[in-house]
Design a protein around this nucleic acid. Structure first.
Lengths: 231, 231
DNA sequence: ACAAAAGTGTTGAGAGTACACCCATGC
DNA sequence: GCATGGGTGTACTCTCAACACTTTTGT
């Protein structure tokens, strides 16, 4: 172990470090995650979370942004470090530690691209996943838990919607992610009193009565104090 | 980059990975963190969070437990992954990514030991820290934020107290960590109604009226739903 | 008896929850 | 004119927050 000012770069066995990015969106009234089909062994043909090795001169977040951009073409979206997975046998090729991130991209703004080591890239429903490579099922489960959790006390839900949206659309997004129905009147009252959205003045027309369009307020404090266990 | 089933272990430059463990305790009516004084450059003589390189056949959590035991002699305490720090220039010797953990050890149960690459190990007040090596000040700040945050919606505060404790002692622990005074009556009511502690039947005597001793209930659900931003 | 710390209730305000009908548009 | 989805108000309950005095012990 190189305790004293290690000289070279490779004077003791060191693990590989990758960054994986769980990319969520809302599509077809469903919560979707972007997966790639692996071209190479191990797990060739299986689906996996997009990711790759970190480069020596980039930060972890930069690496995650780079992976995100390679797969989706977008950079300016919500991105947060999720957890670091490092069981010694999670990759049969050797010791690979992965720093997982999760990203929220607005509905319908991007089209997946297959990167170099993927034969295919597509959206999968979080509620109907294929067989996954490595420990990626565990990572996705963890990501969904975190997303639900964040949704309950911050306003990250907006990150999954286009710039302009109606209140019923927003409510539907919450319902899809949380997996439960919400009361229309209470939802509307609470979101309006939180002062995080403002009307654009436009309406969205479709079947039935047209709905007011809203946008997210940049100056909004989109966080709520957790209810304390102790006062 | 070894995209196709990398053969050896060192066929491309790979970073070092360390595990650092922020060890908190309550002592002398204060929130303390265990730091070691570095023997070797860089930052020789400066104080640092205990940690070390991961070994190739242990998981991240096992590495954190090993470091914790080396410094304190205990294993069976609260331990949680905090965040992974990986800026390319956080260590002047080269690319070192660190997975930070935080541990809570009960007051007065352990005595710090200086490990091999430390000349000294001791408790420091979180509210009066020395100059720190690397980005360790940032890591400690992050750990305190997380500890406060967890304290507000889980019962993690008990992990810092001995097995038997009085309600005023528990309240004091919360006050020290949160940095604010709490109301005695409201605190007592809320903690009792949460059903997470039970009386042992014993009393602790000292100055003034003796106080009932309580213990934490193992079967307690020590978590509270966050107040939702939206209903 | 007095100092020191433990223990105890009530009230008013605000937030959460449950619930049913009218409104504006397209066809 | 009717089907479709958007939009609105009220009453009850529960939780939170503020606040002061009595009880038990040691000296």
């Amino acid at each position: 172990m190189p305790a004293e000012g290690f000289k070279g770069a490779q004077d003791y066995p060191c693990p590989y470090v990758t960054v994986d990015v769980v990319i969520f969106t809302l599509l077809d009234d469903d919560l979707k995650v972007l997966l790639i089909r692996r071209k190479n062994p191990p797990f060739a043909g299986k689906w996996a979370i997009p990711g790759g090795f970190i480069e020596m001169d980039e930060s972890l977040e930069e690496a995650a942004l780079r992976e995100l951009e390679e797969e989706t073409g977008v950079r300016d979206v919500y991105l947060e470090q999720l957890y670091t997975f490092g069981d010694p046998d999670r990759d049969p090729r050797g010791r690979v530690i992965t720093v997982a991130y999760f990203a929220l991209v607005p509905a319908n703004t991007i089209t997946p691209r297959a990167g170099s080591d993927a034969s295919e890239a597509r959206w999968w429903s979080m509620y109907d996943l294929p067989d996954l490579a490595f420990d990626h099922e565990q990572i996705l489960k963890y990501a969904l838990t975190r997303l639900r959790y964040k949704l309950e006390y911050t306003a990250v839900g907006f990150e999954l919607l286009p710039e302009h949206f109606t209140i019923p659309e927003l409510q539907r997004a919450y319902e899809i992610i949380l997996g439960e129905k919400l009361d229309k009147r209470n939802f509307r009252r609470k979101i309006l009193s939180a002062q995080v959205i403002e009307p654009t003045g436009e309406y969205r027309t479709g079947e039935g009565r047209p709905a007011r369009l809203y946008r997210f307020r940049d100056d909004a404090v989109a966080e709520v104090k957790a209810r304390r266990l102790f006062p």
